[in-house]
């Protein structure tokens, strides 16, 4: 088990390194960079003091160096004296557009993104798994048919539209303030129970909106997989022992269909993050999605690079967790069969 873990961990590190190269290459692909454009702008306006500062930044962040050196110093594998020290040293870089350290620009947004998406992930599983099991056991009942129909509907509804509708009616019926992750009155207040309550209430709409399509897809997939397993000999054996239908299903077929869903956890996080950009814009959620879009447009390379790498880390860590959980629940993987 320890060997398995170590091997996975090593694979993860190598994967991350490869992803970071890709990210950097993609960001650098368009000609020029943020600062050269800015310097030209400032020179044209005759603001030489500002241009001098920009030029200083250029040198400090090594934008005048060849690409591969820039990459190494960004990653932090090649620290230079008096200059930017790099990611591995805990320095996430400078956002040229905001004129702030990257971490100050995205720190809060990352927190919000994590909260919203992890909550959505939990919501998806809590809702989809019981519903899938229910529809598989009672597949000819009215309720099961209704759930299946709703799942179709959920798959087909555009999420931003649903977001607008939900916002409108929740505000009208329950008086929940529109948009954001917390009531504007409490935004700058110190953390308190009241603020936590406000955040929770504000989370409802985004989570429902972000999670709906995935939930619907998951119900349908898990139900189909469960139905396939129900007729396998081991499921018949379980019933031949005298187990009741629900217990037999939960103990055997359900355990057997879990693997692909556990393996999916790693893939779901980045999907949710990129999928929730639109919803975040509509709901004016302070998540990282909108910032990323802007940063990519402006070639704010350290900001964009950091956010992309952050998503990559989430993915890879998610996969590591999925692998470990798989090994825990499936002895065939543990024993290398």
């Amino acid at each position: 088990m320890t060997r398995y873990f170590l091997r996975r961990f090593a694979t993860m590190a190598v994967t991350l390194l490869a992803i970071s190269v890709l990210i950097f290459v993609v960001i650098k692909l368009p000609p020029g960079d943020f600062l050269t454009m800015r310097i030209q702008e400032l020179m044209a306006e005759g603001d030489s003091a500002a241009a001098a500062k920009a030029d200083f930044l250029r040198r400090a962040y090594g934008l005048d160096l060849p690409g591969w050196q820039q990459y190494l110093s960004w990653i932090g594998l090649w620290p230079r004296a008096g200059a930017y020290s790099g990611l591995l040293q805990g320095n996430f870089g400078w956002s040229f557009e905001y004129d702030l350290p990257v971490i100050d620009v995205v720190g809060d947004a990352l927190g919000a993104t994590l909260i919203v998406n992890l909550a959505a992930l939990v919501f998806i599983h809590l809702l989809a798994i019981p519903l899938a099991v229910f529809t598989a056991v009672r597949r000819r009942g009215i309720v099961a048919e209704a759930i299946t129909f709703l799942a179709y509907l959920g798959l087909a509804t555009p999420s931003f539209l649903l977001a607008l509708i939900l916002l409108f009616y929740l505000n009208r019926w329950f008086g929940i303030s529109i948009g954001g992750l917390v009531d504007p009155d409490l935004a700058d207040a110190p953390f308190s129970l009241e603020k936590l309550g406000s955040i929770t209430v504000h989370l409802i709409v985004p989570i429902v909106v972000i999670a709906l399509a995935s939930t619907a897809a998951m119900i349908r997939r898990m139900k189909a997989n469960l139905l396939d397993e129900l007729h396998k000999p081991y499921a018949v054996t379980a019933r031949a022992k005298g187990l009741g239908p629900t217990r037999a299903l939960l103990k055997y077929p359900f355990r057997m269909v879990l693997n692909p869903f556990v393996a999916d956890i790693g893939n779901m996080l980045p999907g949710l993050i990129s999928g929730s950009v639109l919803v975040s814009l509509v709901l004016s959620l302070p998540t990282v999605g909108p910032i990323l879009v802007q940063a990519l447009r402006m070639q704010d390379q350290y900001l964009a690079g950091f956010i992309l790498l952050f998503v990559a880390v989430l993915t890879v860590v998610g996969m590591l967790i999925a692998d470990l959980v798989l090994a825990l629940i499936d002895p065939r993987i543990r024993f290398g069969k």
């Binding site: 000999p233 081991y234 018949v236 054996t237 019933r239 031949a240 022992k241 005298g242 355990r255 002895p331």
Partner: peptide, 21 residues
């Protein structure tokens, strides 16, 4: 009755046993 008074064994001993238990 099932599994207590009347029990059954099947053709495929591999697929009739759950591999994860």
């Amino acid at each position: 009755l099932r599994g207590d008074r009347i029990a059954m064994i099947f053709q495929e001993p591999m697929s009739s046993l759950s591999p994860v238990h």
